[in-house]
Computed example of a mutant assay.
Amino acid sequence: MAEVDIPHSLIREHMVELLRGGFAPNVILLREFHYDKAGILLPGLHFSAWILLGHMQARQHTLLQFMKDPLSNLEIWPDAHWPPNHEPPTAHEWNTAIDAFEQEQEEMVQLVQNPSTDLFQVYPNGKTLAWAAMTTLHHNGYHIGQLKTVGRQVGVW
């Protein structure tokens, strides 16, 4: 089987699209989610939209820190952070959390888009910056799907 040479620019473009959520844009869906429904715990679930956002933001933050300074942030999969409270204290805190999530998502996008970022250098933990970006897009995609399902059940969409 012949090896295919895919331009790094195309890989970067695809990663950026998926980091932002692809056909389910993360930040748009979060901003559409009504604050007054962000704390609802549905029967049988251990998470609300607020809990999902906090969990996503914490994992994304950890992976972004690795991407910004890999050698100082080799611990990339600490215990999962799940916020202890299921609802945002105020609408302002809900919106501030979304802003922080978006800002860090865009920082990661900028790193991926930068041609001088070596996405494929292997660090002492065996990981690459490409791995961190793909892990982020996969993790956020999984939880955005949960958020979308919760949102449908509580009448957001």
Rank of each mutant, 00 (worst) to 15 (best):
I28F: 09
L29K: 05
L29P: 02
L29T: 08
L30S: 04
F33Y: 04
G39S: 15
L41W: 07
L42V: 08
P43Q: 07
H46Q: 14
H46K: 13
F47G: 05
F47S: 08
F47C: 05
S48H: 03
W50Y: 11
L52S: 01
L53P: 00
G54M: 00
H55K: 06
H55T: 00
M56E: 03
A58G: 02
A58R: 01
Q60M: 09
T62L: 06
Q65Y: 09
F66Q: 09
S72W: 03
S72E: 12
L74M: 12
L74C: 11
L74D: 15
D79N: 15
D79C: 09
A80C: 11
A80T: 07
H81M: 03
P83T: 00
P88Q: 11
T90N: 12
A91I: 12
H92C: 10
H92M: 13
E93I: 02
E93P: 01
E93M: 03
E93F: 02
W94V: 02
N95W: 12
N95S: 12
T96K: 11
A97S: 12
D99G: 07
D99Q: 06
E102W: 00
E102N: 04
E104C: 00
Q105M: 05
E107N: 12
E107R: 09
V109H: 05
L111E: 10
Q113H: 11
Q113K: 14
Q113M: 14
N114E: 10
P115N: 12
P115C: 15
D118F: 08
F120L: 14
F120W: 11
